[in-house]
Simulated assay, not measured.
Amino acid sequence: MCTAITFQSKQGVNFFGRTMDFSYPIEPKTYIIPKNYVWHNVLNGNMYSDSYSFIAIGQESDEMLGFFDGVNERGFASAVLYFPGYAKYQEKVTKEQKEPVAALDFLHYILGKCGSIDELDGLLRQISLFGVPDPITQSVAPLHWIATDRSGKSVVIESTEQGIKLYRNPIGVLTNSPDFPWHMTNLRNYMTAAPRQEEEVFWGEVPLRPFGQAGGTVPLPGGDTSPERFVRTAYQKTHVEIPSGDTEAVITCFHLMENVTIPRGVVETAKGDCDDTKYTAFINTKTCEYFFRTYDNSEIACASLWDRSGYSKKPVCLGDLARPVSFHKIS
């Protein structure tokens, strides 16, 4: 599970964020990766050098540093989401000239090399994606990605049996399976949803009036499946009042995601584990600031790429997302 969106303020500042919904225990931390950092592809040990510095949320396991979402110094941002039943990677390295990249490394790869959506399009033509078991689930994770930049453009990257596809994402939303074109087609089932409602209709000679407000939202689905979360998020982000400043935009973004956060115990996997929202994060692509809150602490915290950028040649960990809960007493 997981939901991701892009969202623009009246000033045109592009915000990007997601819920991290997962059934496995994770310990996410915030990292700053410096420009020119050299790292190894887990697939074949090839060495890469990051052209841009970036800040990201991720986790280090078994000496492997993987990322869930992030933004680089150019305002290019991306996140990885689960894509079960549809993700398909290349299985065998051939003699073709395309660069083999592990799906687990792909987010790091593009954050370090892409300064814009246009650059991403060109990069995808040069690589092939391969599946490698991750240290958390011990399996090859089925993944797809959403990306955006300061212009507000958004795209979805999916690797299926048809190969790697780059889809323009005009709605600025991504959840999980099915594939992105299916989700966009499915929106047509909810065309009658609206902020306003009919104040009175007649069935024959019988007048019918609403109980209160929100009658126009009755067509919207209420469950937590991927298609339902996609529809609700797409409706709300395209109808919410557009914020006039950065602070108001951040607050609006978190309110939008409250609509799709998963409380612990509401959704269980076949193994009996809870699939809940570990954290919710939003990024200001103009300032490269991260805003996040966790399941156990709803207070919004902030970190910036510029907090520690340029002070190290290796990744800098800014610490756990988890923070002690405190209550401000009013007297």
Score class of each variant (00 low, 15 high):
Asp275Glu: 09
Gln197Tyr: 15
Thr6Pro: 03
Val201Asp: 10
Phe211His: 11
Phe327Ile: 11
His239Asp: 07
Gly172Ala: 13
Leu65Phe: 06
Phe22Glu: 03
Ile110Ala: 07
Phe67Asn: 03
Ala103Arg: 07
Ser309Trp: 00
Asp50Thr: 14
His183Leu: 07
Ile26Glu: 13
Phe83Val: 15
Glu161Ser: 13
Tyr31Thr: 02
Tyr31Pro: 01
Glu91Asn: 11
Asp275Asn: 10
Asn44Arg: 15
Ile33Ser: 00
Arg188Pro: 13
Leu129Arg: 07
Glu200Tyr: 15
Tyr37Pro: 14
Asn284His: 01
Thr148Val: 02
Gly152Trp: 15
Lys271Tyr: 12
Arg229His: 06
Thr217Ser: 11
Trp182Ile: 06
Thr294Asp: 01
Arg229Pro: 01
Lys153Tyr: 12
Ile33Gln: 00
Leu166Met: 09
Asn297Met: 03
Thr233Phe: 08
Gly112Ala: 08
Asn297Thr: 05
Glu199Trp: 14
Val325Arg: 05
Ser61Pro: 04
Pro207His: 07
Val173Asp: 02
Asn297Gln: 04
Trp145Lys: 05
Pro135Arg: 11
Thr238Cys: 10
Asp273Leu: 15
Ile57Leu: 03
Pro181Asp: 08
Met64Lys: 04
Pro34Lys: 01
Arg308Phe: 05
Arg323Val: 03
Leu129His: 15
Arg168Gln: 11
Ile5Val: 06
Ala102Asn: 13
Thr294Arg: 01
Thr261Ala: 04
Asp275Met: 11
Leu104Asp: 11
Gly204Cys: 05
Arg196Asn: 14
Ala303Arg: 01
Ile5Gln: 01
Leu305Thr: 00
Tyr24Asp: 04
Ile242Phe: 05
Lys88Asn: 09
Lys10Glu: 08
Val71Asn: 00
Thr30Asp: 00
Glu268Ser: 11
Phe54Ala: 04
Ile164Thr: 13
Phe254Lys: 02
Val266Trp: 04
Ser49Leu: 09
Gly245Phe: 06
Gly319Thr: 02
Ile26Ser: 11
His328Ser: 04
Asp273Glu: 12
Phe106Pro: 09
Glu289Gly: 02
Phe67Gln: 06
Leu256Val: 08
Ser116Met: 11
Arg229Met: 07
Asp276Gly: 10
Asp69Ile: 08
Glu119Tyr: 07
Asp21Trp: 04
Glu63Thr: 12
Ala193His: 05
Phe230Tyr: 03
Glu198Cys: 08
Phe211Gly: 12
Ser49Arg: 06
His328Val: 09
Cys274Lys: 14
Asn259Arg: 10
Glu96Gln: 15
Gly265Val: 03
Pro210Arg: 14
Thr19Met: 06
Leu208Asp: 10
Ser244Thr: 13
Gly204His: 01
Cys288Val: 00
Asp121Phe: 15
Pro28Val: 04
Glu161Val: 08
Glu199Gln: 14
Ile26Gln: 10
Asn36Gly: 12
Val71Phe: 01
Ile110Arg: 02
Gly172Gln: 08
Glu96Trp: 05
Val240Ser: 15
